[in-house]
Design a protein around this nucleic acid. Structure first.
Length: 776
DNA sequence: GATTAGGCTTCG
């Protein structure tokens, strides 16, 4: 029988093998098999259920008056059926004996004045309980309602006296989210007010962040237990005392009354629910309570505001400042600053940071906030209090203005950061909104900086190349030699745009797979695109070969046509139209031919013999170019493409004017011009991370031929040129080399602003620089 | 076992 209600003093009725244990000698790890603890029930808490559905009942037992233990009371936690049964029969003042208990660390050890251990009691553990009700000690009023909850009285704020410990209710008028104090604890300053319209500023300390009230906004309702009142500067002040405990509630009138607390156990009665709802109603008309925190899209410069957001990236900037990259799903309506940090220093999902780059804002936090910022987990939801949106403009360009976000040092006006839990209603709403945000706009990959993350960059295995003297530069300047060097640190802190001569080392570069550095560039719309795959060209050719050449458009004044049937390939016919000059055919190496129905292989073969090849198809009246995903012209190994956005294609007929020239040159640019094509140029796009010891920056190399002395247009079709490029990069930035041993590069760089939408970013580009001839 | 802060915007 696990519970026995006995009718005499337990000492006389207990099994003889059991020995009584004093709180003084109670500690974890001791064998408690033959021990029992005896005490008087001084309070009990309402019967509750744990998360797993187990019944749970907590009571407090006190040792007898003559106990010599430092603490006289201990928490008893009962589980399962024992909890349920005990809850029905126990009375305040009863004598209780517990045998067969487990001793564990009390979860509320820092919050009450009781023994640091508690006793766990359950049928599973083989516990037995004896209860003795002494009739004379129990009054009628105490037994009236069971179980007995400790009675709390709450002092109105206009009745406070110095030197007392009281229980309070109040609406939060002002608060500082917990911050790390100069002592050993977290500190939170909270000013509350109640219907008496009297304020009380409380200074709350605790080494455990969770033990401080979880206040998220002004207007929240708090309940403080055991707070000490004292006088300071002729005013009442609240301060944490032993056993301080708090509950915090959302202050919205009518919202569910769910307490935020660190302790699992707390008393909470219906009467108190009424108190909270009354305070909510009072606060709604007597307290300046703001609605939801503003979104980035509605942020005005020169303001202090609270931002609710998600952390997507973070980086240390220097000892006294720290970068937080955050977003709230909306786009700031002003251009915002970008804080330059090393990509390797940035913690967070690089792909996500990149995808969200037009929606995130950079927040710099300073001084005392750095320590807390460092500990934040990427992905967590934050409220940043009293964030400063500062209007700024580029030094020499007053019209280029943007917004900076600073969380200044100190805790004035509640400046600080608080992590919001996932179940916070504002977080739930924010998350739902973020999920609905279409990222198509920010995913748009058009700007040069977008090449930062093009796939994975594997390390190539380089051979060791001859070392160049450290004092010399592996690059040379092709102009402006009179300029003085500028340190990178100075450049990073200077206004944009400007040009500089620098001397730095190439710490790393992207892409590491060099063939990925070749792109097609349209100088008209400034777009960059990947070089199409040869297989795609093959498919386009096969597709157009399915339609037989139209005999109507064969042979014209300016070209002569020849048509072949293919063997064993069905109906496929190949037509070649030889462009004439002065009504005569020219030597093949000077001739432009238009080819219809040919395969990729056939066209490759023809391009070895003829100067220019134009793949075409025939319409009813004329010869036409293929889709611009295919090259419009092939010259030897160079394939020329046109811009899909900017070209306004004409039919092949327009070439007749060129053919009539006295000396047709068949220059690709001329051919493109008459065909209405905006030609794309092959370029090297690379990102060089340069470091000169004073600072580091990423500079883009945007080069057709000059830097490497290799034409970008020929690299993809020449293994020789690819090897040469690998060799050069292996000298400029030898893999696995001590930074001290890296060669120097002399370069010109220019700074410029890149805007995508409303966002501005400072970029750097290398120009008028080439690899030294003896390196090549 | 005391201390921390004790609201009232940085100047980056």
């Amino acid at each position: 029988m696990p519970i026995q209600v006995i009718d005499g003093p337990p000492e006389t009725l207990l099994p003889s093998h059991l020995q009584r244990v004093d709180l003084k000698y109670l500690q974890m790890g001791c064998d408690q098999a033959n021990k029992y603890f005896q005490g008087t029930v001084i309070s009990s808490y309402p019967l509750t259920k744990l998360g797993n559905g187990t019944e749970f009942f907590k009571i407090v037992l006190q040792e007898s008056e003559n106990s010599c233990s430092r603490t006289r009371s201990i928490n008893i936690s009962l589980f399962g059926k024992l909890a349920e049964d005990c809850g029905k029969v126990i009375h305040q003042g009863d004598t209780m004996v517990v045998a067969g208990f487990k001793v564990a660390k009390s979860p509320s050890t820092n919050e009450d004045d009781r023994h640091s251990c508690h006793l766990e009691v359950s049928e599973d553990a083989g516990s037995t309980i004896y209860i003795y009700t002494k009739p004379s000690t129990v009054t009628a009023s105490e037994t009236a309602s069971m179980p007995v909850a400790p009675k709390y009285t709450y002092t109105p704020l206009n009745h406070l006296k110095g030197g007392t410990i009281v229980n309070l209710y109040g609406a939060v008028k002002f608060f500082k989210p917990p911050y790390i104090s100069n002592g050993t604890d977290y500190c939170s300053v909270v000013t509350i007010v109640d219907q008496s319209n009297v304020k009380l500023t409380c200074t709350l300390f605790n080494g455990n962040l969770d033990a401080l009230p979880k206040i998220y906004k002004v207007g929240d309702i708090v309940r403080f237990h055991r707070i000490k009142i004292r006088e300071y500067n002729e005013q009442m002040q609240g301060i944490t005392s032993i056993g301080f405990a708090s509950l915090t509630f959302d202050g919205t009138v009518g919202a569910p009354i769910v307490p935020r607390t660190s302790t699992k156990l707390y008393t909470f009665t219906e009467e108190e629910q009424k108190t909270i709802e009354e305070l909510r109603i009072w606060a709604a008309s007597n307290l300046l309570v703001f609605g939801p925190t503003p979104k980035l899209s509605s942020v005005q410069p020169m303001l202090f505001f609270d931002l609710t957001c998600q952390l997507v990236g973070k980086a240390e900037v220097d000892g006294s400042s720290f970068l937080l990259k955050v977003w709230d799903g909306t786009k700031c309506s002003y251009p915002t600053w970008k804080v330059l940090v090393e990509e390797s220093d940035l913690e967070g999902d690089k792909v996500l940071i990149h995808r969200l780059r037009s929606l995130t804002v950079d927040v710099l936090v300073y001084d005392n906030h750095v320590q807390l910022a460092k500990s934040l987990k990427v992905g967590s939801f934050l409220r940043i209090y009293s964030l400063h949106s500062k209007h700024a403009s580029a030094g020499n360009q007053p019209d280029v203005s943007y917004v900076e976000f600073h969380l200044h040092g100190g805790t004035c006006y509640g400046r600080g950061i608080r992590v919001l839990p996932e179940n916070n209603p504002d977080v739930k709403e924010l998350r739902a909104f973020m999920d609905s945000v279409s990222l198509t706009e920010s995913q748009n990959v058009e700007s040069m900086s977008s090449m930062e993350l093009d796939g994975t960059f594997d390390n190539l295995s380089y051979q060791s190349y001859s070392e160049r003297c450290q004092q010399l530069s592996v690059t040379v300047l092709t102009d402006h030699q009179h300029l003085e060097d500028t340190t990178l640190n100075t450049i990073l802190n200077s206004a944009v745009p400007q040009q500089y001569r620098i001397r730095a080392k190439l710490r790393t570069f992207k892409p590491q797979k060099l063939h990925q550095s070749i792109k097609l560039y349209c100088s008209k719309c400034n777009s960059l695109q990947e070089v199409p795959d040869a297989d795609d060209f093959d498919l386009i050719l096969r597709d157009s070969a399915a339609t037989a050449p139209n005999p109507e458009v064969q042979d014209a004044l300016w070209y002569e046509s020849a048509v072949w049937d293919t063997e064993n390939q069905g109906q496929r016919k190949i037509a070649v139209h030889f462009v004439k000059h002065d009504e005569l055919l020219q030597e093949p190496e000077d001739t432009l031919i238009m080819v219809q129905g040919g395969t990729l292989n056939e066209i490759r073969k023809l391009s070895r013999r003829f100067k220019c090849i134009m793949p075409v198809k025939s319409s009813k009246e004329d010869l036409e170019l293929l889709d611009l995903a295919a090259p419009f012209l092939l010259q030897g190994k160079i394939w020329h493409y046109g811009c899909k956005h900017c070209s306004k294609q004409k039919t092949a007929q327009s070439l007749s004017s060129l053919a009539a020239d006295e000396h047709p040159s068949w220059e690709p640019t001329e051919i493109a011009r008459v065909l209405g094509i905006e030609p794309l140029q092959y370029v090297f796009i690379m990102k060089f991370t340069l470091d000169d010891g004073t600072g580091a920056l990423d500079a883009y190399l945007f080069d057709y031929e000059k830097f490497f002395q290799i034409p970008a247009s020929e690299v993809l079709t020449s293994s020789l040129l690819q090897e040469k490029m690998e060799m050069i990069m292996g000298i400029l930035c030898p893999p696995e080399t001590n930074p001290d041993d890296l060669p120097w590069l002399e370069c010109f760089i220019r700074s410029y602003n890149v805007s995508s939408g409303m966002e501005q970013q400072v970029c750097y580009q290398i120009f008028d620089t080439m690899v030294a001839e003896d390196v090549i």
